[in-house]
Design a protein around this nucleic acid. Structure first.
Lengths: 120, 120
DNA sequence: AGCTGTACTGACAAAGTTGTCAGTGCAGTT
DNA sequence: AACTGCACTGACAACTTTGTCAGTACAGCT
């Protein structure tokens, strides 16, 4: 039986998560929300990420319609990625996610930093 | 090098996703948003999911503070899971995600169901 | 001629997540 | 006495996602 979120799950939550899920997709989208970038710029701006992963994620985001790839046909190649019109509809959702995540991080750091079983 | 979203990534998007990420967590939360349920009820309500996974996800959600586990000490055991106060703060975020996901599913089904390269 | 930068691809290993299966303790039912 | 249901745990196999590494084509520079 299949296992991954990439399956055509009919659950809308899964459908959305399958788009942003991927170790670096959030970060990539975050960078691109400030403007288009070339592949190598993106890569340098997220040094912990490998080129292989960047490209794989970019391709998925493009095929999901979130990004557009614009290529200037010359040598050496120059490819620029930008958030597509459809991708912009995702940005407010990411902002909501991000806002909650910020609160969650705060909560984990000070105060209730209980990972695992609690008191009693 | 670490790889998973479970790491203490400082990115708020990752922080949020690490909470709902897991093959069945969305569905579990969805069910519980209609009211507390016993372990076995939940399991029966999502037949494709195995008991093992249910329990693993429940435990993670509890340790993230999203759910509360209430146990009536008797035999056979009776454990009920409910969305915690903190968990309710997540529900509107899930609704936002869900709304976008619904649109995305529609888009994939009819019309631009282009997975892969587009026309040209 | 050799090296660099760009944007990739392919093969494969490592790590992470899910699934399978067997087992636990105890009460109630047959 | 054997079986069922409940809420779990542990060991391990199967599958997915990431990471590593080598290689491609071509122009420009030295």
């Amino acid at each position: 039986m299949p296992v991954s979120k990439k399956e055509i799950s009919p659950c809308p939550i899964d459908a959305m998560l399958s788009v942003v899920d991927g170790r670096w997709k959030g970060t990539i989208l975050w960078r691109l929300s400030e403007g288009p970038m070339r592949t190598s710029e993106l890569r340098r701006s997220i040094p912990e990420m490998t080129e292989r992963m960047l490209i794989r994620h970019l391709q998925e985001l493009v095929s999901d319609g979130i990004l557009v790839r614009r290529e200037e046909r010359r040598v050496p190649p120059c490819v620029r990625y930008a958030i597509a019109d459809y991708g912009w509809t995702l940005v407010p959702v990411l902002e909501t996610i991000c806002a909650w995540g910020r609160g969650h991080l705060r909560r984990k750091i000070h105060g209730n930093g209980r990972a695992g079983l609690s008191s009693r």
